[in-house]
Amino acid sequence: MPIIINLDQVLADRKMKSKELAEIVGITEANLSILKSGKAKAVRFSTLEAICEALECQPGDILAFSSTNSFEEGQ
């Protein structure tokens, strides 16, 4: 997946645990784990909005694009 999720990094910067974030955002820990592990196929705007609000950050702080990953997958 060429989209990288930097949620772990942002959480560590905010000294917040995944459980806390899941509670604030209103999603299950299992779903948050799917997002963090990069297994998610899509993210709802409402979820992204809630995460950004909880972590006081921009979507770009959480999501990043890496062309090398997509190249490796193509191989």
Binding site: I27, K41, A42, V43, R44
Partner: peptide, 8 residues
């Protein structure tokens, strides 16, 4: 369904 299940 898989895509829907993996939508957060």
């Amino acid at each position: 369904k898989e895509e829907n299940d993996l939508t957060v």
